[in-house]
Design a protein around this nucleic acid. Sequence first.
DNA 1: GACAAATGTGACATTTATGACAACTAGTGC
DNA 2: GCACTAGTTGTCATAAATGTCACATTTGTC
Lengths: 188, 188
Amino acid sequence: MKTLTTGEIAKLCDVNLRTVIRWIDRGALKGFKLPGRGNNRVREEDFISFLKEYDMPVPSGFKSKEANKRILIVDDELPVATAIQRVLRHAGYDTSIATDGFRAGSMLLKESPAVMTLDLSMPGQDGFDVLAYVRATQEVASTRILVISALDETSLNKALAYGADAVLQKPFENAQLLTMIQQLLAGE
Amino acid sequence: MKTLTTGEIAKLCDVNLRTVIRWIDRGALKGFKLPGRGNNRVREEDFISFLKEYDMPVPSGFKSKEANKRILIVDDELPVATAIQRVLRHAGYDTSIATDGFRAGSMLLKESPAVMTLDLSMPGQDGFDVLAYVRATQEVASTRILVISALDETSLNKALAYGADAVLQKPFENAQLLTMIQQLLAGE
DNA sequence: GACAAATGTGACATTTATGACAACTAGTGC
DNA sequence: GCACTAGTTGTCATAAATGTCACATTTGTC
């Protein structure tokens, strides 16, 4: 469970630390106190619901943690991408498609999807490298990534090692895809 | 996330604090309220777009943030990219390098550079398509793009038609590069 | 462990929101 | 020029929120 200190919140809200403590004392922001002298901690989700309740802007690094059901589908073969999209849309998810690396990277940051499906073998684009990059990029590091690939098991394991949250080997059943997406969205 | 108080804006616009609050209440200036009694805060970027929308002068202190000097260098050949970077850094610009489409798209949105240099011929990435996409994507549409390519003049003209702000044919002189960047940063 | 960095606290200084009202700015019609 | 609107902005006093500061204490980090 990720928590925030008063100082961190102060920076995020561009406000004085003293003020954050007052918000907590007043009950506007839900938090709890450490045993020591009563240093405050605020759960990330409480902070976000606080921001939303008061119509305050959510810092970019937290957007991904909003209950966002958007799914970004990355695959250079449009027919494959639309097939995946059809299944997910049918299940009620908001989806977007990126058929090249530039669009994928751009849309990932623009939309902060909860889940990204990733084709490992895109022309001119090393899938493992994409995984490493996403995990190293703070703004989107928490995106859940489902690697979809026709490559062998060794490559899929490698993908997991590089930071994929789940892998799905082509060809696959629609039901498999849906189950995995649901699991990824459920697992916080 | 830098924010401004009503008092700061009042001074910047040489106007009464009361008036700033009215602008916000009326919705002319986008802002949000702190939990306490509803003290107002305005994000710096919202303030600047407000100034522009109403053709108000942008205070000198903000020009720097507005005229962002960051430059994103997109080229799959790292030696070429670092060569460009060296020249631009030497001239005092902040630079970043993206050697593949995914990184390029991601960093473009993450950093909102003032200028992007773009190699037209990246593996698996259609440079013209990138141009079209950037121009069609609201968040980054105003990025100035300098296309750097070894392709012939026909292709360079095509790049201009697709939305490039300037083109530079390889090989080029460092001085040429610098001049073009300066012009791009000066123009608006 | 020891050290550096961050946090909580109280008292006090500043800043801000608010309402009511005055002053100012077009614009209108005469 | 002279009212007369309607709208915006400035002024003022007051209550409330937020910022500042120094210092003791706690947490984080090697």
